[in-house]
């Protein structure tokens, strides 16, 4: 079964024109997919449709085989596809971390003893064990966002949707969150990450570019990031390393195509120096 199956999806907000049109997208279990696009490309709307916060105008969204159009499925969809939002301040409901993490499991009626276990599990998954009794408002942005992820993990989801969850963080916080998400993905979590930081897309299995409500590019990062001109047309830049590699290539250095990652570039440059 696919984790996500979107078929011929159209969506428009009330009285507006289509925000998304003709979206077809399949994500298999355990995949790490990055959705890229400039502001207004419809990427956040797509995230909301996957989580059942919005319902399609036409077409269908199926999460783990459950159609979001059926009201009785919504609860189960949200349980299995957890969503982390952009603003770390607007996602916690309680003044103590532990109470906040309990919120999700409480909502779905988990037994008390198990809630305690789930809180411990969620905190260890995001590396925040020692903050169980802390106050979220006193944590850093990155820590708050990790707590938000933990709050979703406490529901034991199989898919994580990140709606620009690193957009409001400083570089350190962004690195914290990204590494937590990567770790989760390694352990089998399906991840759909919406971002406009190219460097975050580098590690994903697949990159999808949205523009004006349509999927305009799709492929593995190496392929997508080699099409810099096309990306620029959709208002996106290639990752820094890809950009540098391209410039070096243009200036006559023999750097292989398909380098878009800091480490790979470093290696290529080192080899060049060794050759003299």
């Amino acid at each position: 079964m696919n984790a996500l199956e979107i078929k011929n999806l159209d969506f428009a907000y009330e009285g507006g024109k289509n925000v998304l049109s003709g979206i077809n997208l399949t994500v298999s279990e355990g995949e790490f997919v990055c959705l890229l696009g400039r502001n207004g490309s419809g990427k956040s709307t797509l995230a909301r449709l996957i989580n059942g916060l919005l319902l399609p105008a036409r077409g269908s969204v199926c999460v783990f085989g459950m159609d979001s159009a059926e009201k009785k499925n919504l609860f189960e969809i949200r349980k299995r596809a957890g969503m982390v939002f952009q603003n770390p301040d607007n996602q916690t409901v309680a003044s103590i971390v532990e109470d906040d993490l309990a919120f999700g499991p409480e909502n779905v009626g988990v037994e008390r003893a198990e809630i305690g276990e789930r809180i411990s599990y969620a905190l260890s998954a995001v590396g925040m064990e020692e903050f169980r009794y802390a106050t979220p408002s006193k944590l850093s942005g990155g820590q708050k966002q990790r707590i938000a992820i933990a709050g979703v993990l406490a529901l034991k989801p199989d898919m994580l949707i990140l709606d620009e969850s690193t957009a409001m963080l400083d570089p350190k916080g962004r690195a914290e969150v990204t590494s937590v998400v990567r770790e989760l993905n390694k352990n089998g979590m399906t991840v759909i990450s919406i971002t406009h930081y190219m460097d975050e897309a580098v590690d994903s299995d697949r990159v999808i570019v949205l523009s004006e409500g349509k999927i305009v590019m799709q492929g593995v990062p190496a392929e997508i990031f080699s099409r810099a001109e096309e990306l620029a047309r959709y208002g996106l830049n290639v990752p820094k390393a890809a950009y540098i590699a391209k410039k070096l290539r243009e200036n006559g250095l023999p750097i292989a195509e398909g380098i878009y990652e800091g480490e790979a570039l470093e290696k290529a440059l080192c080899e060049l120096f060794q050759k003299g």
């Binding site: 916060l53 949200r78 349980k79 957890g82 969503m83 939002f85 409901v93 919120f103 909502n107």
Partner: peptide
């Protein structure tokens, strides 16, 4: 936003 976050954490 909090309302959305609560919804997606299955609050009902």
């Amino acid at each position: 936003e909090l309302g959305d976050a609560m919804d997606s954490r299955c609050y009902s």
